[in-house]
Computed example of a mutant assay.
Amino acid sequence: MEFKTGAMEVVEFEGGQRALKASSSSDIIIPLPELLPDRYTIELDVISRAGQGVGASTLHVGGGRERDNTFSELHWGHGGFYLRGGPVQVDLDTKDRERYLGKPASFRILGDGKYLKAYVDEKRLVNVPNALFKRDKAVIVRLEGRDDDKDAVYLTRIRVAESQKTIYDALSADGRWATQGILFDTGKSEVKPESTPTLKQIAAALKEHPELKVEIQGHTDNVGKADANLKLSQARAEAVKSSLTGEYGVSGDQLSAKGYGDTKPSGDNKSAEGRANNRRVELVKQ
């Protein structure tokens, strides 16, 4: 990360979390090892200004080392979302702006060719088919902070990465998607809290595509008795379904749940790595 302009400092919150604090309109550069790929993800965790006296957005994100209005630039804050520059202009007001005043939020950009999607806290803001985000060896981020604690902007995390195949893409192309990101204690069927990011990802895909119906499959390794593994895998599949419908608002009509125990291994049960790969949850398109 490179400082470009403005007034910024690293601060530490109670509990040890560190953040980059912007107390003026400040620009940082995120250098990349190569050109931004055709499919990419940009994620920023920020804490917006606590007051409403400043009309500027919380952050701006664009490609390259300099702001260039011939290319698309994304602006977001408690007042709304705006797409500026390039061939398309978008203005969206925020209805629940108090939700973001002085509070953390996760802003995410997904690019795929000219397609550009933006999300805040897993809620999709926009899907633009003909944006023009600059492909370069850097990303520029502006934080619109001001010179007091109430109107400072804090950046707690930033990530730029090449996007992998989405859940929907995998289901469309392969008919199935497997994950080891849904976690359980040994011999238990309660979904662990560490599973939240994966469950959010699954829920977002299903809610974005309400026509999609999937079977949630539970799979185990071959350690223990086969009938016990079958029962456990069924309980785990049902627990995932219950989490998606009860906690994340996915329609139950889109989901079924079935456990297969150790009958469909994806790896060799003779090795620890193979057994780990066999302990999985899969979504199978119906």
Rank of each mutant, 00 (worst) to 15 (best):
F107A: 02
G79A: 06
K165Q: 15
Y82L: 03
A170N: 06
A161K: 12
T70N: 13
V139N: 02
K95R: 10
W76V: 03
G80A: 10
F107W: 12
A152N: 03
E122S: 14
L155Q: 01
A161M: 11
R157S: 13
G85P: 08
V90L: 14
T166H: 06
L101H: 14
R99F: 15
D93W: 11
R157G: 12
V153W: 03
L125Q: 11
S106D: 03
D147E: 05
I109L: 15
G77Q: 07
K165G: 05
T156R: 14
W177N: 04
N69M: 13
D151T: 03
Y154D: 10
T179E: 10
V88N: 07
F81L: 01
A170R: 04
F71I: 04
R176A: 06
D147A: 08
Y82S: 01
G102H: 12
T166K: 05
K150P: 01
E162F: 04
A152Y: 01
L125R: 12
P129H: 01
F71W: 13
D185F: 08
F71G: 01
K137M: 11
E162Q: 13
T70S: 14
V141F: 06
V88L: 13
G85L: 03
E98N: 15
G102R: 09
I167V: 14
A105F: 02
R99W: 12
Y100D: 07
A138F: 08
R99V: 15
A170F: 02
D149T: 11
